[in-house]
Write a protein that binds this DNA or RNA. Structure first.
Lengths: 264, 264
DNA sequence: TCAAAAGTGTTATTGCTACACCCATGT
DNA sequence: ACATGGGTGTAGCAATAACACTTTTGA
């Protein structure tokens, strides 16, 4: 079985009849693990460069659904926070020397190869997923698939580094509108965990006590009675995210929390 | 001369060799005039529906540049605040019955007609322009082109109403990051004018005095010595936007001003 | 019993809201 | 002279930043 670079599915090569020309989707899939923000990347066995999970758009498929499909194939996840953030439309964004290499490596037919030498603009999506819920779906015969810390990214294909940077800065800007922490953490989480998520995203330490007050004042999380033991110290309380309230807040104009300028 | 729907240029029909398949750009061009936010729309003479100025992407052209080109053709403007806000990628977003109608009306060749019966995903851009600087470039033999108040929009083609709504809500969300007022107003403007822009965008009256204090506290506008006479009352001072400072603020993480939740 | 990390509380400062008052101008 | 709308100031309240002390727990 040949696993296809950037194909949403694993069995067929993309053809002009089945997929839209010129446009692809790429997903920057974020999770939070061991105190760090991680990005999911894959790499063809013979290649040097890691890539974002991406794919093409079927002729009868919404672009957003194509992104969902790509995400689902790699992670098994269905109901995910997935958001457009930028269209990368530069005409020379792709490094075709990379493509030529894997066309050779994979021994592609000439007409399939042509597909990979076309210009593609790509819609960048970012996803926020819960690390433990992900079931990495790796096609071991052709590729690797793994999480990378945002601070220690490997060599990346074409403009994919640029795409990742765009995703993270979009998230920073949207911090007031998007319930980032709750998407990245499991149902029950501790306040220190939530704070670590924010600290990792903005790259800055936050005051423990002020952070807690602020988060609680928004009214979207509920304190539970349970605690979690995490080492040689007092056990922190668990909290849960109030999805109903969030849905309501989202309808009525959203705006979760205002961060003062000095926050950044 | 045949003016072409959605073609960036006016003289040639788009063909598969010259333009990217499947993707188009649409510009929601905003200005501010007589206390209202206006949107620039065009309409084929024989059609009922108004459209956003849009176009296709040349095979050797960045998508963002295509949007610039579309904007430039209609307004004559060059250096404009133009920003992606959403990709409209639904596979049934276009109303082909509309397209069939103008294919007939314009008496298009069969192979050109085919182009207009394809699926296109469209990148939505919004632009903020200064009303007085715009030179409307109308192709009188085939179309009308005019400003419409955001509150009194005419019938719109396909999903263009939806696109406009998306643009305005993006702007609302980005109010803290984008120097909206300064883009929409001329170099010299009065504080009441600036306030009216914000009021028009958020659809809410703002306190004169608090608004002034807030705007000045950001440090991006300079009070001038001149005043402008505007009727039977005290003449308001003129202010100017400090572009250098803004450029600096933009580099160093931006964030112009934080609006408290109650602002919305 | 000590270090590490959590919980809670206080105070000073800043920012925001909601006002009141004065000033310039055309009719 | 008066209505209209702009300029400036202030008191009360709310949010934020900075910081101290206590509690729990494993080693």
């Amino acid at each position: 079985m040949t696993r296809l670079f950037k194909s949403g599915e694993s069995l067929t090569y993309p053809t002009q009849e089945e997929y839209l020309d010129s446009i692809s989707v790429d997903c920057v899939i974020f999770s939070f693990h061991e105190g760090e923000i991680k990005v999911l990347l894959n790499k063809l066995l013979k290649s040097e460069n890691w890539m974002l999970p991406g794919g093409f758009v079927r002729v009868d498929e919404n672009v957003d659904d194509a992104a969902c499909r790509v995400l689902n194939i790699r992670t098994g996840l269905d109901d995910v926070f997935l958001k457009q953030f930028h269209l990368f439309g530069e005409c020379n964004r792709l490094d075709f020397s990379d493509n030529k290499k894997f066309i050779e490596d994979l021994n592609m037919d000439a007409d399939v190869a042509k597909w990979y030498l076309r210009r593609f603009v790509t819609m960048g999506y970012y996803a926020l997923v819960e690390y433990t819920k992900v079931n990495l779906n790796v096609y071991h015969d052709v590729e690797e698939l793994d999480w990378f810390s945002l601070n220690k990214l490997p060599n990346l294909y074409s403009d994919h580094r640029h795409i990742i940077d765009g995703a993270i800065s979009s998230i920073r800007i949207q911090l007031g509108y998007v319930p980032v922490g709750f998407q990245l953490l499991p149902e029950k989480f501790t306040m220190p965990e939530l704070r670590m998520v924010y600290e990792a995203i903005i790259g800055k330490e936050l005051d423990r006590r002020n952070f807690q007050r602020k988060m609680l004042s928004v009214g979207l999380i509920t304190k539970l009675e349970e605690k979690r033991k995490t080492g040689a110290h007092k056990a922190p309380y668990l909290y849960s995210f109030n999805k109903d309230r969030y849905a309501e807040a989202e309808r009525s104009g959203m705006y979760l929390m205002s961060w003062s300028s000095s926050f950044f």
